[in-house]
Design a binder for these strands. Structure first.
Lengths: 214, 214
DNA sequence: CGTGTCTTTGAAGCGAGTCAATCAGGGTGG
DNA sequence: CCACCCTGATTGACTCGCTTCAAAGACACG
């Protein structure tokens, strides 16, 4: 797998890795830093589709049509590994297990997107933000970082875009969670005080949705 | 590709093809009929993730973890082809082009899900329903069916679940589009009177969002 | 130290949700 | 063949949560 990495690319904060419409030639694995992908609707619409941190993969959106269908931008200085798609494909034919491995990665992307759809379709602001924070902290934990003290790399507007909320609502909801003693929010520095409460909110505990199957 | 189809399965309306948690062994191509896939949240949450008609593929959700993560149910009597995943994988190694082909299919699923996310995150009820109808009719047209006179195979509640709306809102929005002379709705029979108007709504024309980039 | 960007907070408006009643069909059994 | 019933669809009135518009506050930068 390592033999595939043909090049590394360093991105400054705000720099674009690839754009909607760009020819799809490679996937990118994040080595360090923090990125976002977003789709720009023709009118004012623009939605963040995902945030990527070290270890995450970008670019699968381009597999379908040989062209990327979203934009990838670095939210802080970052470094990515380039994985040429043609090489990956031919290697899949030779190396046993790699094919399966790659399919799992694509499958995970599908499952993740569907979970996001669930969030966008059915949750209220408080639940969305709680789910977002839990997702972020669990990913940080898996990478050996603190899951308690988090520095958000994205703006309120970007969080809102991802969660289908307006930036004011995000800000207000942060404040609400702080007042409830669940989070400690100071600008982009967030401390998770009560992770269980966050989970309880995500599970619908905060709304009277509790009955077993109605 | 045809050599892969090991078996056909006939489903009666309401019958389940696979369930969340089922072992993933095969993909399914719809031959005839109409299905839905939905995820059941632990509490009352339950969301339709997609509707499938002839030619569509089901089951990609299981690739990631060897288990399905959603339920597939027939909305009318249907017939599906079973494509064993193990066989597909090994065939991908032998038949040139098949690998690429399969990756495109997975890629399309990713792109489709992201478009749905865009819909759920940013559109209002009227826009969502218009997009839904246009999507349905374009798929029907591609299959040689009428793109004007449509019979909905799913209930208002299922439409609402897919679009992140309540069934009453779906019903009301249908009525609104009928009053506007854009649709002719009689229960589950829908006639598209003005497809351009639907597209205009999807593009944000109905809300004063029209300025080029604000 | 100003200046611009991002964030927080307030007040008012509106769209979708909720609760509830009625209506339309489809199927069943008398 | 028709009356009945059950499910799904429509419509209305009211509520609530998110958005919108507006203003002030917090930092980061030159």
């Amino acid at each position: 797998m390592a033999s595939l990495v043909s090049a590394r690319r360093t991105l400054r904060q705000g720099e674009t890795l690839f754009r909607d419409g760009d020819r799809f030639v490679a996937l990118y694995a994040v080595r360090t830093g923090f990125l976002k992908t977003h789709i720009g609707g023709r009118d004012g619409r623009d939605q963040v589709t995902a945030f990527q941190m070290a270890g995450d993969l970008l670019g699968l959106d381009g597999v379908a049509s040989e062209r990327h269908t979203c934009n990838a931008v670095a939210l802080e200085d970052s470094q990515v590994c380039m994985i040429p798609y043609a090489g990956l494909e031919s290697l899949c034919r030779e190396v046993p297990g790699l094919l399966r491995q790659f399919h799992r990665v694509m499958g995970r992307e599908i499952v993740r997107d569907q979970r996001t759809m669930l969030l966008l379709a059915g949750m209220r602001a408080e639940e969305r933000l709680a789910a977002f924070i839990l997702n972020l902290t669990s990913r940080l934990r898996a990478r050996g970082f603190s899951a308690v003290a988090v520095v958000l790399r994205m703006s309120r507007e970007e969080i809102g875009s991802f969660l289908g909320l307006k930036l004011e609502t995000v800000s207000r909801t942060f404040s609400k969670l702080q007042d409830a003693g669940i989070l400690d929010v100071r600008q982009r520095h967030v401390r998770v005080v009560d992770a269980d409460a966050l989970q309880w909110i995500v599970d619908g505990g905060a709304s009277h949705r509790g009955r077993t199957s109605a």
